[in-house]
Amino acid sequence: MNVVIVSDSHGLTAELAQIVSRHRHEADLFIHCGDSELPAEADELAPFVVVRGNCDWKAAFPDERIEEADGVRFFVTHGHLYGVKTSLLRLYYRAKETEANVVCFGHSHLAGAEQINGVLFINPGSIALPRGRKEKTYAVLTIDKDQAFVQFYDVTGHPIPGLAQTFSF
């Protein structure tokens, strides 16, 4: 299973369309972790499971979503309601409440992945305004049996060296 995860696109449309076009034949699920700043009916968001970010004032997206694919439970939120810039603790507790295997979130614009007590947390960074690095990033999660592989890409589709990680699942 392949899952494309983006966040914090802040009004970008061409970039979202390019990411979908690039991965449409391999992705089983597209996730947008909020701050799209686009209307809910925007064509560029149609392939995505989308949540509301702190900058999504007009669109009627939910604050969080639970999606299941191939037996994997995803908890998707933007992160601002869980204080992710300070700690993942509140988000971890919510993941446990929802029995999520994978948590996808944004808000901090910092690309990264880590596993805490069996729960995989993925922040794809930002395809508009990255922090902590120059590349505008998104992530692709590949799950095969008991392995989860997270690869980060720049907005043009080039893998970012040193950010890929494999986790036991």
Rank of each mutant, 00 (worst) to 15 (best):
M1I: 06
M1F: 14
N2P: 03
V3Q: 01
V3P: 00
I5W: 01
V6D: 00
V6G: 00
V6S: 01
D8Y: 08
D8H: 05
L12N: 10
L12D: 13
T13I: 08
T13E: 15
Q18P: 05
I19D: 02
V20D: 03
V20Q: 04
V20T: 13
V20H: 07
S21G: 15
D28I: 03
L29F: 06
L29M: 11
I31P: 00
L38D: 04
P39V: 06
P39R: 11
A40E: 15
E41Y: 07
D43A: 12
D43L: 12
L45Y: 01
L45R: 00
P47D: 05
P47E: 03
F48I: 03
F48V: 04
F48S: 01
V50D: 00
N54G: 11
K58S: 12
K58H: 13
A59W: 05
F61K: 05
E68C: 12
D70Q: 15
D70M: 08
G71V: 11
F75C: 09
F75K: 08
V76W: 03
H80P: 01
L81G: 04
Y82D: 08
G83P: 10
S87R: 13
S87E: 14
L89D: 13
L91N: 02
Y93I: 09
K96F: 05
E97S: 08
A100I: 02
N101C: 07
V102G: 00
V103S: 01
V103E: 01
F105G: 01
G106Y: 02
G106K: 01
G106Q: 03
H107D: 11
H107Y: 09
S108E: 02
H109S: 07
H109Q: 12
A111N: 06
G112Y: 09
A113V: 13
E114A: 13
E114I: 11
Q115T: 07
Q115A: 15
I116A: 04
N117Q: 15
N117C: 11
G118P: 03
V119I: 15
L120G: 01
L120S: 02
F121T: 02
F121R: 02
F121C: 08
I122G: 02
I122L: 10
N123P: 05
P124W: 03
G125K: 02
S126M: 06
A128H: 08
L129K: 14
R131C: 07
R133E: 04
K134R: 14
K134Q: 13
K134D: 09
E135S: 04
T137H: 00
A139Y: 00
T142R: 15
K145W: 08
K145I: 07
V150T: 02
Q151F: 05
V155E: 07
T156C: 11
I160S: 13
P161H: 09
L163E: 07
L163D: 03
A164T: 10
Q165H: 05
T166K: 08
F169G: 03
